[in-house]
Design a binder for these strands. Structure first.
Lengths: 192, 192
DNA sequence: CGTCTATTTGAATGTACTCAAAAGCGGTGG
DNA sequence: CCACCGCTTTTGAGTACATTCAAATAGACG
């Protein structure tokens, strides 16, 4: 269970034996059933989450009632509401399990203590936030410069197996197009 | 010069006297003239930059030759190409001074040494990356859920004085619309 | 001033959306 | 095992938001 997390961390930084123990101690396992919510918009997000098994989505609902997916997370991804977690303000995202999930969870006091116990972990955490930032910049750029079709093709190239785990209309909600339009794009593309 | 940076840092974390000295030592001042480039796409971005004075923009050019602005930076903002800097790969962004600028610059070895000399600075750096991540998530969400008019109104609300420093067509390139369309939005809105 | 760039305006066009309905798919219970 | 129900995907027709291209106007800089 924690082994996956430790392997994930040690791909970026090396952890001493006591640091590894600290990680094991501070992260708690948690299971979620399909359709269960890890977070509801309006609540404060008090924990950070590492996905050991399963698939989740984080989404916001706009003033017209439409869902917009900000992130999917599968094995070895992190998911949460960074804004709510950092600033301790009400979350704007819902986070929902799309399959039965196993997570490793840490709360904010635990995380801050872990930063002190394991400086290498604070470095690791900085690195994953940097990587998340880089990925988001790519996404902003994609939305600024690419058509719906280009974004879809890039998406399935980047996440080759996610189409088997996530319904099409949620991929549309991630890419910023209607499910109808995504359907049309796919028809065009299957005709080749 | 370095005082602005130290005040900026100590709004997030406290620095011991030796840590403050380390910051002063590792950051070098650099001036840029209006229209000068801090970075060209294709080059590796080897430094991180804190804006003491002036205004810059980071933009990418797409396959059709159009510019898309990923970030503006004014006093007390950070600017760079995170992907290129972290992974040491060719940059996709151009970074250009829109006014005469004074920056504080640190290269990667300097930054890594500073992280070791001043652990509080590594914490600070993590926090600003988190804040940048949060801001980018808001931007992704805005592009997913808002019309061009809504994004423009939110933009001028969030950056009230940037309209005096940045030409309209660049704001359009940031918001993801054509300059013509932004012009129409503004006309509609001045008629009230 | 004159030139160069930025902004505005107009008309036609296109990409993607809305609304509505049909078809497909998967799970559940009789 | 099959029938039904709910949800997802597809298809169609009309529409809207935003773009393109072209030209006129306004501003900024030397």
């Amino acid at each position: 269970m924690h082994d996956l997390l430790l392997r994930h961390i040690t791909r970026q930084v090396s952890l001493s034996a006591p640091e590894q123990d600290a990680v094991r101690t501070r992260f708690q396992a948690r299971n979620l059933k399909k359709r269960e919510f890890l977070l509801q918009a309006g609540d404060v997000c008090r924990t950070e989450h590492f996905v050991v098994q399963g698939c989740l989505r984080a989404y916001a609902i706009d003033t017209e009632g439409k869902e917009h997916i900000i992130q999917f997370a599968v094995e070895e991804w992190w998911i949460g509401d960074m804004r709510s977690f950092v600033r301790e303000v009400p979350a704007e995202f819902f986070i929902e399990a799309m399959e039965n999930c196993t997570l490793l969870v840490i709360d904010k006091p635990g995380l801050e203590q872990l930063f002190r116990e394991a400086p290498a972990f604070e470095r690791f955490y900085r690195i994953i936030v940097q990587n998340a930032f880089i990925a988001l910049q790519q996404r902003v750029l994609a939305k600024l410069s690419q058509t719906a079709e280009e974004r879809y093709l890039e998406f399935i190239g980047r996440y080759p197996n996610i189409e088997q785990r996530v319904p099409q209309h949620q991929i549309a909600a991630y890419l910023g197009m209607t499910p109808e339009f995504l359907s049309r794009i796919r028809r065009q593309w299957s005709g080749r």
